[in-house]
């Protein structure tokens, strides 16, 4: 493992020395040969030369600071890291839990989608089926139940319905024919 790591470290440290011109400056346009398109009005590659000097040095400073802190914590003062972790401060918790991204995703996207899924599933059963096929069947069944109660078997009930229907039907015809006019 030491040899691959050493090789990778060399590449990580020195690759820029050899490839900077080919990839970034100098003859980079020859290297990319249009593989990465840049619009004529886009001057981002030129503009990066005009950033404040502290921006250029910031990555180097942060890297060195990180290196020094790590060396101090894990090489010269072993146990400091554990003590910081055990103190359980909010900063440690925030980083330990990866900025709580997983928990935020879980609470919003995952639980939200699950809630919607359950809601839609209930909508399928209660609303779509309830109004649709199940509802139609229920209404038909209830109507049939009520209508069947009219089948009493008494002749005068049937005669009443026949006469009533004849009166309604006759009334409609009479009105259509012009009524009293």
């Amino acid at each position: 493992m030491l040899v691959p790591l050493a090789l990778l470290s060399l590449g990580a440290i020195f690759a820029g020395v050899y490839f900077y011109d080919a990839f970034v400056d100098g003859n980079n346009e020859t290297f990319w040969a249009g593989a990465i398109y840049r619009a004529a009005e886009n001057h981002v590659l030129h503009d990066r030369h005009n950033v404040p000097e502290w921006v250029l040095y910031a990555p180097l400073v942060v890297t060195i600071a990180g290196f020094l802190i790590a060396t101090f914590t894990y090489y010269f003062n072993r146990g400091v890291g554990k003590r910081v972790a055990d103190s359980g401060g909010p900063l440690h918790s925030l980083f330990y839990n990866k900025w709580y991204f997983d928990e935020i995703y879980q609470a919003t996207f995952v639980k939200g989608s699950a809630m919607l899924g359950n809601l839609f599933w209930k909508a399928d059963k209660k609303i779509i089926d309830g109004i649709g096929p199940d509802g139609v069947v229920a209404v038909t069944k209830a109507s049939a139940g009520r209508l069947s109660k009219m089948h009493t078997g008494y002749l005068y009930h049937y005669a009443f319905v026949i006469i009533g229907a004849a009166l309604v039907f006759g009334g409609i015809l009479w009105l259509r024919a012009g009524g009293a006019n």
Binding site: S113, A114, L116, G117, N118, F120, W121, D124
Partner: peptide
């Protein structure tokens, strides 16, 4: 969208 979410809850 609707049926995909419902599928997930089955």
């Amino acid at each position: 969208v609707y049926t995909s979410l419902v599928a997930w809850r089955q």
